[in-house]
Deep mutational scan, measured.
Amino acid sequence: KLLSSIEQACDICRLKKLKCSKEKPKCAKCLKNNWECRYSPKTKRSPLTRAHLTEVESRLERLE
């Protein structure tokens, strides 16, 4: 599967780190437990900047 097509777990399953069936409108866990089942939009991760990478590398060197 391509990364862009990976389905996201519902908010509660993601928060509780449960295996989500990803069914809509309610996944199996939410249906069974009568929880409100919501699927928040995916958040875009910002790409690493060179400055951040350099900072992490220098912190790693100090720890070694």
Rank of each mutant, 00 (worst) to 15 (best):
E55C: 13
R45Q: 08
I12H: 12
L3E: 15
Y39G: 04
E7I: 09
K24L: 14
E57K: 04
L2K: 10
D11W: 05
K22Q: 09
T43Y: 03
K17P: 00
K32I: 11
S46I: 02
E23Q: 15
K44C: 10
K26P: 03
K22P: 07
P41F: 01
E57D: 08
P41E: 07
L60E: 04
R45V: 00
E36Y: 07
E57G: 00
K17G: 00
R50L: 05
E55L: 10
E7A: 07
L53W: 07
T49G: 00
S46Q: 03
K44V: 15
L31K: 14
A51N: 14
K26M: 14
V56K: 03
S58I: 14
L48W: 09
K24P: 07
R14C: 02
L3G: 12
L63K: 02
L60W: 01
A28I: 14
K44P: 15
L31A: 14
R45H: 02
H52F: 07
K29L: 08
L15N: 11
C37W: 01
V56F: 03
P25F: 01
L53A: 01
T54D: 09
E36D: 13
K26T: 11
H52M: 00
Q8I: 07
L2M: 15
I12R: 11
S4T: 10
L63V: 03
P41H: 06
S58T: 11
P25L: 02
R50I: 04
N34M: 14
H52Q: 08
K24A: 15
N34Q: 14
L3C: 14
L31C: 13
K32S: 10
Q8P: 07
L31M: 14
T54F: 05
L48G: 07
E23P: 08
S58C: 15
E23G: 12
L18V: 01
A9Y: 03
L53Q: 00
L15E: 11
W35Y: 15
K16Q: 01
Q8V: 05
S46V: 01
E7Q: 08
S46M: 07
C27D: 09
C37Q: 09
E61M: 13
Y39A: 05
L3Q: 08
E7Y: 06
R50C: 02
I12D: 11
K19M: 01
R59I: 00
S58M: 13
W35C: 07
Y39N: 02
L48N: 00
L48S: 05
A51F: 12
E7L: 11
L60A: 13
K1D: 09
T54N: 08
L2F: 08
A9H: 06
E36V: 15
Y39K: 02
A28D: 10
R38P: 07
Q8Y: 11
